[in-house]
Design a protein around this nucleic acid. Structure first.
Lengths: 223, 223
DNA sequence: TTCATAAACTGACTAACGGTCAATAGTTAA
DNA sequence: TTAACTATTGACCGTTAGTCAGTTTATGAA
């Protein structure tokens, strides 16, 4: 009588199918323009059925955000598992972030959507929102671990609080990859074209300055 | 017969009144939740009249974005006019940016909205969008000027391209102030609380690392 | 196999919103 | 006073998120 378990599995599977359909429609029509009717049709379900799995369109979109943050976290975890100096791991995480935005811009778009939500009640009641928040916190922890490693191996200035430093890097690189996202998603209106600077070069400078600024070498100079 | 001119002035004034009303409603109801009906009522006009001044709700929101970018640019311009080293000016610009987000979060929200627009045609046809883009480019130029000054006065590493460096700083600080905005606008769900780090401290670290990383001192070390 | 119960699903319906436009009011200049 | 023009109105439309009474399908006991 494993019916109960199977039901639960199938239910979860259906939800994933709906998220698949949503991603597909969004890729075709755009994040804002996608409608629940289209998503339902793509998932071969009625619109009403969508609401049996997600309480609202916003929650469905948070499910996409969750997928994205899962993937990004996996990438960070992989970097942390590698044999590299702390500083090198931070650089690699930055590269992963940039690559992620380039190859899965939809997920980054979903991150932005998540951040733009102001409805507290919704955020509090949605399990998806909670998981997204958890992942966000997790990503920060991965960075913090890499920084701690760097402080141990002597590649990173150990006078900083690792968590605070992680937050600085997490936030500032968010701004950098947002610019990369903009260039990627709307290449014809962007600041970048006017200025004729490419993302790789800019990202290189960012990493260089960051590395310079927080390296243990930099500390020695000040002492 | 200065009627024509007066008409034009009054028309412009009306448009400003509508933007005022929109800001008021958004502050009360939120950026997404504000409706054109409410804005019209607040402006003591019918909804139809709004569309005589703005082609769409999106364009009205871009008018808000334009106001915000005007203000931010004024602040940057003021910093550039001060007697400070290049490095000091960059720091001051960062502080202005942070202060701007704290005191005028609505405008920062409008910036995010502007960046999220994907409809090219709309962006191309809207005069407001063009002005916003111009301002964005202008802000970057202000930063670039401060950096050039710093390269001259010896406070900033002169091996970087000023414009590229400006873009790095502009983008990364956007990420930092976005975090500040999040903390300000939704203090009860944010990463920051879990981690117990306050924005001022984090911003201080950001500026320190940035300064370290791009200072001429840092260059000497590498040579 | 039959049947009662429950779970999954449907699609017509509602409410709310952005946007339109024919009709109206107000202004200008002769 | 009037004709032309401009500004404004608000009822109306199409679209979309979300609902729910009713239908189909799966389950497990008799």
């Amino acid at each position: 009588m494993g019916t109960e378990k199977r039901r639960s599995r199938e239910k979860a599977r259906r939800a994933e199918t709906i998220v698949d359909a949503a991603e597909k429609v969004i890729l075709e029509k755009g994040f804002e323009a996608a409608t629940m009717d289209e998503i339902a049709e793509s998932a071969e379900l009625s619109k009403g059925a969508l609401y049996l799995y997600f309480r609202s369109k916003a929650e469905l979109y948070l499910a996409i955000c969750l997928r994205g943050s899962n993937e990004l976290n996996s990438r960070f975890a992989a970097v942390l598992a590698s044999r590299n100096s702390g500083l090198e791991m931070i650089r690699k995480m930055g590269e992963e972030y940039l690559d992620f935005v380039k190859n899965k811009p939809l997920y980054f778009r979903a991150f932005s959507y998540y951040e733009s939500i102001q409805d507290f009640e919704f955020l509090q009641e949605s399990g998806y929102a909670e998981l997204c928040e958890k992942n966000s916190s997790q990503a920060l922890t991965y960075m913090s671990r890499a920084l701690q490693a760097g402080m141990q191996d002597g590649t990173i200035d150990n006078r900083y609080d690792p968590m605070e430093l992680a937050l600085v890097i997490w936030s500032s690189s968010r701004g950098i990859v947002q610019m990369a996202f903009l260039k990627h998603s709307s290449p014809h209106r962007n600041i970048l074209n006017e200025v004729e600077i490419d993302i790789q070069s800019m990202f290189g400078s960012y990493i260089e300055i960051l590395s310079n600024g927080m390296s243990a070498e930099s500390k020695k100079r000040i002492d």
